[in-house]
C-alpha cells in the first residue's frame, strides 16, 4: 500500500564529492519495498523547489524503521537533500512503481551506471535469497565514482569499468570482457543513463536474454495521474511512474 509518511534524517553519508546515502528513520513501521521501487521525496525548507523528487530506494531496515536512498547531487533538489542535518524532517510518498522480476536459481547480470546502482543492493539480496547467482558490472568515468564496492562484493561477483582506466577495465561498461560470455547469464537487469541501458539491452536481446531496464524519466506526481513521465512502448505511451519504472527491454521503443 502506498503511504505518505514523515521521517527524520539519521545521516547523510557522503561517498565521494557528488554522491551520498540519505538514511531516514520513521516512528512508525515501514511499508514493504521491492527492488526497483522508488519514493517521491519532498525537499524540506526549499520554497524554490516546487515538486517532489523521485528517488529509487537503496535499502530498507524494517526492524530499525529505516529507509535509505543512494543519491547523486546533480540538481538543486538532490543537493539540498544531501545538506540536511540529522534530525531534519523529510516527508516521502512511497513505495511507488513496479519492481524487477525476481528469478530463482539463475545467473543474473546486473549492470549499473551513475545513480542507477541504487536499486541493486535490494535486488542482489533478493536474488541471492532465491538461490540465484549475482554478477555486478558498474561503469563510471573514474575510480572515485565507483562506490559501495564492499556492499556489492558481498552479494555477488563485482566488476567495473572506468573511462580513464583507474579501476577495473578501461572503457565503457558495454565494452567489458564479461559480455564475451554473455550466454552464461539467464537475465540482465540494468539501470542508469538511457544510452547505456539501450546498449546493454541490445546485447541481451541479440543473445535472446531477457533484459529489464529501469527508466529515470522526469516525473511530477509519481502515482500515475499527471501522465508527464511517459515512454513509448509497443503498447503505446506507458506511464513510467506507475506502469514502470522497470520495463522489459523488448517492450520499449527507445
Amino acid at each position: 500500500m502506498k503511504r505518505i509518511q514523515d521521517f527524520s534524517v539519521i545521516d547523510t553519508l557522503w561517498l565521494n564529492s557528488s554522491s551520498y546515502i540519505l538514511i531516514l528513520k520513521s516512528e512508525t513501521s515501514i511499508e514493504k519495498i521491492d527492488p526497483g521501487n522508488f519514493a517521491e521525496i519532498k525537499i524540506p525548507d526549499a520554497a524554490d523547489i516546487f515538486l517532489r523528487r523521485p528517488i529509487s530506494v537503496y535499502d530498507v531496515d524494517h526492524e530499525k524503521k529505516e529507509i535509505s536512498f543512494y543519491i547523486k547531487a546533480i540538481g538543486k533538489g538532490t543537493s539540498k537533500l544531501g545538506s540536511l542535518l540529522p534530525g531534519s524532517k523529510v516527508n516521502i510518498v512511497y513505495p511507488l512503481g513496479n519492481s524487477y522480476t525476481p528469478v530463482k536459481n539463475k545467473n543474473a547480470l546486473i549492470v549499473g551506471g551513475g545513480s542507477g546502482i541504487a536499486p541493486f543492493k535490494l535486488l542482489g539480496e533478493q536474488l541471492r535469497g532465491l538461490g540465484s547467482k549475482v554478477t555486478y558490472l558498474f561503469g563510471a568515468r573514474t575510480s572515485e565514482e565507483i562506490v559501495l564496492t564492499d556492499v556489492f562484493s558481498k552479494l555477488g561477483k563485482f566488476n567495473c569499468t572506468t573511462e580513464d582506466g583507474s579501476l577495473g577495465e578501461k572503457g565503457l561498461v558495454t565494452s567489458h570482457s564479461i559480455f564475451k560470455n554473455i550466454k552464461y547469464f539467464d537475465i540482465v537487469y540494468t539501470c542508469g543513463p538511457d544510452p547505456m541501458m539501450k546498449a546493454i539491452a541490445k546485447i541481451a536481446e541479440n543473445n535472446n536474454i531477457r533484459c529489464e531496464a529501469s527508466l529515470e524519466n522526469m516525473m511530477a506526481c509519481g502515482i500515475g495521474v499527471c501522465l508527464c513521465c511517459v515512454t513509448p512502448t509497443i503498447r503505446g505511451n506507458a506511464v513510467v511512474c506507475s506502469e514502470g519504472p522497470v520495463f522489459q527491454s523488448t517492450d520499449l521503443k527507445w
Binding site: C228, C229, V230
Partner: peptide, 21 residues
C-alpha cells in the same frame, strides 16, 4: 498524447504538455 518531455518545473509551478492522453 504528446511526446516526452511533457513537464517542466518552474518557479512556484510547473508547465505540462500532456496532450490529452
Amino acid at each position: 498524447g504528446n511526446d516526452y518531455p511533457r513537464m517542466a518545473e518552474t518557479p512556484s509551478g510547473m508547465l505540462n504538455a500532456v496532450g490529452l492522453q
